[in-house]
Deep mutational scan, measured.
Amino acid sequence: EFILQPIHNLLMGDTKEQRILNHVLQHAEPGNAQSVLEAIDTYCEQKEWAMNVGDKKGKIVDAVIQEHQPSVLLELGAYCGYSAVRMARLLSPGARLITIEINPDCAAITQRMVDFAGV
C-alpha cells in the first residue's frame, strides 16, 4: 500500500484523502454529520482502504462520549476528519473538540470535512 499509494495518487491526480473528501462532497448531505460518516464508510469499504476508526470501532467511541459527556475533548491526529466528525456530533452544546494534525494537507481536509458536516 505505502509503495503503490504515490503511484496511485499520481495517476489519479490527487491524494486518497482528497478523494475521500470529494466523495463526501458529492454523496453526503451538507450539515448532516451522520451522512458524512456513512459516505466515508462507504468509500472505504467499496473504493480504497483508509486509516480511520470506521463504524464498528466508532460505536465504541460513541458510547464512551455519551457516557462521560466531556466538556473538552483532545484528538491527536485527525487524518481526514472521520473521528472529529464522529466525536463532535455527540458533544453537548458548549463542549469543545480540539484536534491536532501535523500534516497541513490532512488538517485542511479535516477542516473542510468538519465544516461540511456542520459540527
Results as ranks from 00 to 15, higher is better:
residue 1 E to K: 15
residue 1 E to V: 12
residue 1 E to D: 11
residue 1 E to Q: 11
residue 1 E to A: 15
residue 1 E to G: 12
residue 2 F to C: 14
residue 2 F to I: 13
residue 2 F to V: 15
residue 2 F to L: 13
residue 2 F to Y: 15
residue 2 F to S: 12
residue 3 I to M: 11
residue 3 I to F: 11
residue 3 I to L: 10
residue 3 I to N: 10
residue 3 I to V: 12
residue 3 I to S: 15
residue 3 I to T: 10
residue 4 L to M: 15
residue 4 L to R: 06
residue 4 L to Q: 15
residue 4 L to P: 08
residue 4 L to V: 13
residue 5 Q to R: 12
residue 5 Q to P: 11
residue 5 Q to E: 06
residue 5 Q to K: 15
residue 5 Q to H: 07
residue 5 Q to L: 04
residue 6 P to R: 11
residue 6 P to S: 08
residue 6 P to H: 03
residue 6 P to A: 06
residue 6 P to L: 06
residue 6 P to T: 09
residue 7 I to M: 13
residue 7 I to L: 14
residue 7 I to V: 03
residue 7 I to N: 14
residue 7 I to S: 14
residue 7 I to T: 01
residue 7 I to F: 12
residue 8 H to Y: 13
residue 8 H to Q: 15
residue 8 H to D: 15
residue 8 H to L: 14
residue 8 H to R: 15
residue 8 H to N: 12
residue 8 H to P: 14
residue 9 N to I: 12
residue 9 N to K: 15
residue 9 N to Y: 10
residue 9 N to D: 10
residue 9 N to T: 12
residue 9 N to S: 13
residue 9 N to H: 13
residue 10 L to V: 15
residue 10 L to R: 12
residue 10 L to Q: 14
residue 10 L to M: 14
residue 10 L to P: 12
residue 11 L to R: 14
residue 11 L to H: 13
residue 11 L to I: 13
residue 11 L to F: 08
residue 11 L to V: 15
residue 11 L to P: 09
residue 12 M to I: 08
residue 12 M to R: 10
residue 12 M to V: 09
residue 12 M to K: 05
residue 12 M to L: 10
residue 12 M to T: 12
residue 13 G to D: 01
residue 13 G to C: 12
residue 13 G to V: 14
residue 13 G to R: 08
residue 13 G to S: 07
residue 13 G to A: 03
residue 14 D to H: 13
residue 14 D to N: 06
residue 14 D to V: 11
residue 14 D to A: 09
residue 14 D to Y: 13
residue 14 D to G: 14
residue 14 D to E: 14
residue 15 T to I: 14
residue 15 T to A: 09
residue 15 T to N: 11
residue 15 T to P: 07
residue 15 T to S: 05
residue 16 K to T: 12
residue 16 K to N: 10
residue 16 K to E: 09
residue 16 K to R: 12
residue 16 K to M: 13
residue 17 E to G: 15
residue 17 E to V: 09
residue 17 E to A: 14
residue 17 E to D: 07
residue 17 E to Q: 06
residue 17 E to K: 11
residue 18 Q to H: 14
residue 18 Q to E: 15
residue 18 Q to L: 08
residue 18 Q to K: 12
residue 18 Q to P: 13
residue 18 Q to R: 10
residue 19 R to H: 10
residue 19 R to L: 02
residue 19 R to G: 11
residue 19 R to P: 10
residue 19 R to S: 10
residue 19 R to C: 04
residue 20 I to S: 13
residue 20 I to M: 11
residue 20 I to T: 06
residue 20 I to F: 11
residue 20 I to L: 12
residue 20 I to N: 15
residue 21 L to R: 11
residue 21 L to P: 00
residue 21 L to V: 14
residue 21 L to Q: 11
residue 21 L to M: 11
residue 22 N to S: 10
residue 22 N to D: 02
residue 22 N to Y: 03
residue 22 N to T: 05
residue 22 N to I: 00
residue 22 N to K: 06
residue 23 H to D: 00
residue 23 H to Y: 00
residue 23 H to Q: 01
residue 23 H to P: 00
residue 23 H to L: 00
residue 23 H to N: 00
residue 23 H to R: 00
residue 24 V to M: 00
residue 24 V to L: 00
residue 24 V to A: 00
residue 24 V to G: 00
residue 24 V to E: 01
residue 25 L to M: 04
residue 25 L to Q: 11
residue 25 L to V: 07
residue 25 L to P: 13
residue 25 L to R: 03
residue 26 Q to H: 07
residue 26 Q to E: 08
residue 26 Q to L: 07
residue 26 Q to R: 02
residue 26 Q to K: 13
residue 26 Q to P: 09
residue 27 H to Q: 01
residue 27 H to D: 02
residue 27 H to L: 02
residue 27 H to P: 04
residue 27 H to N: 05
residue 27 H to Y: 01
residue 27 H to R: 08
residue 28 A to T: 04
residue 28 A to G: 05
residue 28 A to P: 03
residue 28 A to V: 07
residue 28 A to S: 03
residue 28 A to E: 10
residue 29 E to Q: 09
residue 29 E to A: 14
residue 29 E to V: 11
residue 29 E to D: 06
residue 29 E to G: 06
residue 29 E to K: 15
residue 30 P to A: 12
residue 30 P to S: 01
residue 30 P to L: 08
residue 30 P to R: 15
residue 30 P to T: 11
residue 30 P to H: 10
residue 31 G to W: 12
residue 31 G to A: 11
residue 31 G to E: 09
residue 31 G to V: 06
residue 31 G to R: 04
residue 32 N to D: 08
residue 32 N to Y: 14
residue 32 N to H: 14
residue 32 N to K: 13
residue 32 N to T: 10
residue 32 N to S: 07
residue 32 N to I: 08
residue 33 A to S: 10
residue 33 A to E: 15
residue 33 A to V: 10
residue 33 A to T: 08
residue 33 A to G: 07
residue 33 A to P: 04
residue 34 Q to E: 12
residue 34 Q to P: 13
residue 34 Q to K: 12
residue 34 Q to H: 12
residue 34 Q to L: 13
residue 34 Q to R: 14
residue 35 S to R: 11
residue 35 S to T: 07
residue 35 S to N: 11
residue 35 S to I: 09
residue 35 S to G: 05
residue 35 S to C: 07
residue 97 L to Q: 05
residue 97 L to V: 01
residue 97 L to R: 11
residue 97 L to M: 03
residue 97 L to P: 03
residue 98 I to V: 04
residue 98 I to N: 08
residue 98 I to M: 05
residue 98 I to L: 09
residue 98 I to F: 05
residue 98 I to T: 09
residue 99 T to P: 04
residue 99 T to I: 02
residue 99 T to A: 05
residue 99 T to S: 02
residue 99 T to N: 09
residue 100 I to V: 10
residue 100 I to N: 03
residue 100 I to L: 10
residue 100 I to S: 08
residue 100 I to T: 07
residue 100 I to M: 08
residue 100 I to F: 07
residue 101 E to Q: 08
residue 101 E to A: 10
residue 101 E to K: 00
residue 101 E to V: 01
residue 101 E to D: 03
residue 101 E to G: 04
residue 102 I to S: 10
residue 102 I to L: 04
residue 102 I to V: 02
residue 102 I to T: 02
residue 102 I to F: 05
residue 102 I to N: 07
residue 102 I to M: 06
residue 103 N to S: 01
residue 103 N to T: 03
residue 103 N to I: 01
residue 103 N to D: 02
residue 103 N to K: 09
residue 103 N to H: 01
residue 103 N to Y: 00
residue 104 P to T: 03
residue 104 P to L: 04
residue 104 P to H: 06
residue 104 P to A: 07
residue 104 P to S: 02
residue 104 P to R: 05
residue 105 D to Y: 15
residue 105 D to H: 06
residue 105 D to E: 04
residue 105 D to V: 02
residue 105 D to N: 07
residue 105 D to A: 00
residue 105 D to G: 08
residue 106 C to G: 06
residue 106 C to S: 03
residue 106 C to F: 07
residue 106 C to R: 02
residue 106 C to W: 09
residue 106 C to Y: 06
residue 107 A to G: 04
residue 107 A to S: 09
residue 107 A to P: 02
residue 107 A to D: 06
residue 107 A to V: 00
residue 107 A to T: 01
residue 108 A to P: 03
residue 108 A to S: 09
residue 108 A to V: 00
residue 108 A to G: 00
residue 108 A to D: 01
residue 108 A to T: 00
residue 109 I to L: 01
residue 109 I to T: 03
residue 109 I to N: 01
residue 109 I to M: 06
residue 109 I to S: 03
residue 109 I to F: 05
residue 109 I to V: 05
residue 110 T to P: 07
residue 110 T to I: 04
residue 110 T to N: 03
residue 110 T to S: 04
residue 110 T to A: 06
residue 111 Q to E: 04
residue 111 Q to L: 04
residue 111 Q to H: 02
residue 111 Q to P: 01
residue 111 Q to R: 01
residue 111 Q to K: 07
residue 112 R to W: 03
residue 112 R to L: 05
residue 112 R to G: 05
residue 112 R to P: 04
residue 112 R to Q: 08
residue 113 M to L: 05
residue 113 M to I: 02
residue 113 M to T: 01
residue 113 M to R: 06
residue 113 M to K: 14
residue 113 M to V: 05
residue 114 V to G: 09
residue 114 V to E: 07
residue 114 V to M: 01
residue 114 V to L: 03
residue 114 V to A: 04
residue 115 D to G: 01
residue 115 D to N: 05
residue 115 D to Y: 14
residue 115 D to H: 07
residue 115 D to E: 02
residue 115 D to V: 00
residue 115 D to A: 02
residue 116 F to Y: 08
residue 116 F to V: 02
residue 116 F to C: 00
residue 116 F to L: 08
residue 116 F to S: 02
residue 116 F to I: 03
residue 117 A to P: 04
residue 117 A to S: 15
residue 117 A to V: 00
residue 117 A to G: 02
residue 117 A to D: 13
residue 117 A to T: 04
residue 118 G to C: 08
residue 118 G to R: 03
residue 118 G to A: 09
residue 118 G to S: 02
residue 118 G to D: 05
residue 118 G to V: 08
residue 119 V to M: 06
residue 119 V to A: 05
residue 119 V to G: 06
residue 119 V to E: 13
residue 119 V to L: 09
